[in-house]
Structures are given as C-alpha cells and as structure tokens.
Design a binder for these strands. Structure first.
Lengths: 167, 167
DNA sequence: AAGATACTGAGTAATTCAGTCGGGAATTAA
DNA sequence: TTAATTCCCGACTGAATTACTCAGTATCTT
C-alpha cells in the first residue's frame, strides 16, 4: 500500500468520471485541462486503470472514458493499487526470515497496520463520496451551467478555448 | 498525506523503540542491522522525528534513541507526516481557484478523503499495536533470550558481532 | 473521407530515494 | 585524561520514480 501524488491524480480523475457518469464519457483532454495534469501522463495512468477494469475507453468523436463498474463497486484502495502497484515488499516477506528464523516482530506489526489501512480504503467507494448531498448539489449546478453554455453554442465542438464548467 | 517506503521505515523503527521502551535506549546501529536499512539513512529519518519531538537522542555509550512521549500518545499519522512531510499541495490550494472561481469539486472530494485517512491513522497509536497480547508474548520471550545472553557475557559491551535477539 | 478520440511506446528533465562519506559533539568507561 | 561509543550534521552520489514530450497508430462518428 503506497500513496503518492500519482494515486491522488488517479483518484480525483476517477471521481471526475463518477460525477459525470450519467452524461456521456469524459475525455482525458477535459480532465487534463481541469486538473492541470499533462494529457500523456493521464493516458499512462488510464492505461493501468483500464488494465484493472476500473475504466473503459470509448474511441472516436464523442468518446472518452467511462467507469468500468458502478461507482458503488469501485473502492479507493483498488484505484490506488492500480496505479501505484507497489506491493510494499518488506525485506523478509512471507516465511522468509530477516535474521533469527521467525518473521521479525516489527514486520508483523507493519503487516497488521498495512492490512488495516487497506481495509479502511477498500471500504470507501467512489459512490460514498459523490452521493453526499452537498456534492450532488454542486454537480447539478455545474450540469445546468454546462447545458446552458451548450445551448448557447449548440453543435460546434470547440470554439477557441473550451469553456469547461465542470471543474 | 503521503505514504511510501520511507514512512514504513519510520513507523517500524518507532515500533522498535516502543517495544524496547522499558529497557534502555535503542541504538540506530541495532535498528539498521535488524531491519536492513543503512545507518546514515536512519540518521536522516531520525533527525526529522527528533525535530517533531517524537524521539529523543541519548549520546555516549549506552545511548541511543527513546520515545519522546508515551507510546499511547504517538499516532501513526504523526510519524508518517514527520518523515514524508508532503502536505499534498493540490494545484488549487485553499481559496485559490483551479479554473472557474470556486474550488473545484474533485479537489473538495480529495480533501474529504485525505481528511478521513488522516483521522484514521491519527487514531492509531503505537501503543495500540504493541499492547496486543500475542505481541507482548513475543517481546517477552525475546527479552528473556536477550537477558540470558547478557548473563552469559555480562559487562563487556561488544563481543565480535553483536547477537541481536530483538529482531 | 475527415476529424476526434483512445491507445502505444520511446525518450527525457527534474525530483526523490536511499545510500556513502567525512567529520564533529556529548557522554561514559578505562 | 584518554578512548570508545553514540548521536548529530552536511555535502555528495547513483538509481529509481515522476511527470512530461513527442510521434505515431487504431477506432469511431459525422
């Protein structure tokens, strides 16, 4: 279990997908612009997320990424594990001994802690975050803004700099 | 909130101190040998732990490090924060805006998650780990082995390679 | 057919990790 | 007083990781 900026990028991006799940797929270009992460870097992260089945890509115009499963069935732990993929190998993993034969005490304690942490993050789903009322309110408001803008400039895909109201 | 190998080193080392708290200070050389971490690297980590008051150093022969507070008053979150010191700056920290004026939604969600994680780790103290009965049993057994060896070679500080039974 | 989008892989500067080295400063034991 | 032991401090270094760039291919919609 490792947790770094990379993991944060992945989690916030997944939250983005979850929020806009009912609308179409979300493009990486949107997320990139929204969160200030490079597009290619996002592509690398999403390659890993896709490999784990957490997202699915839709190609072509109007495409983007969608959640691979309902947000209630995607845990934070899964997302972090997908991109950080560091199984945190202690020097004396499993039955291997550090020194004296039996697995050393502190490593047992660490495994204990690590397990508790994983359990904690595995019980937090994407849905448990985005379903809170104040969040739904903001998302709703942004949707209406977005749709209002969409009404003002109807079918044309991009007019200069895209106004992205979903951030 | 960041969590890496570095944090693990710090936590396991602190657990080591906690376990042997009733005996004298623990030397970094011991921990280094026990856990297979370089001595100088440990020194750097402990410099940070000391700055936060989590440990106190005792110089001279028979010296080493002691917990700065009772193990019941040291949380895992504190330890990790002391060495990882990454306050996890999102691009739109505080009142700054990512794009549209108000703090973006996903960053609010991340802060929420980050807060929950911190709270979780802040409620886990060193004591809550080492006070579990099976741990106390192992520690006790190691203590008796250590004291038995100490009885066999009484006052002399080091005889060749130190036999470290506390791993 | 054209354009938008996901995909893939090679390469790269900057940062962090983990370690080495060389030297102090304080304390205890001889 | 001397020597050994330990903490303490700072500069440097190779290796790994981060985050990014570029350049291209595959697939889909219009």
């Amino acid at each position: 279990m490792k947790l770094s900026t990379k993991g944060r990028y992945a989690v916030t991006a997944m939250m983005d997908l979850a929020i806009h799940d009912h609308q179409g797929p979300v493009t990486l270009a949107d997320i990139s612009q929204c969160q200030g992460i490079s597009l290619s870097y996002l592509e690398q992260l999403f390659a890993k997320l896709r490999k784990e089945g957490l997202v699915e890509g839709v190609r072509g115009p109007g495409g983007g990424y969608r959640l691979g499963r309902p947000s209630s069935q995607i845990s934070i732990a899964e997302i972090i594990n997908a991109v950080d993929e560091n199984i945190d190998v202690t020097r004396c993993l499993g039955s291997k001994d550090c020194h004296g034969g039996e697995k050393c005490l502190t490593h047992q304690l660490w495994e204990d802690l690590s397990g508790r942490l994983y359990e904690f993050l595995d019980n937090l789903t994407l849905a448990s975050f985005i379903n809170r009322p104040e969040i739904r309110e903001v998302a709703r408001r942004q949707d209406t803004i977005a749709s209002r803008i969409a009404t003002m400039f109807p079918p044309r895909p991009t007019i200069g700099v895209a106004v992205n109201a979903s951030c």
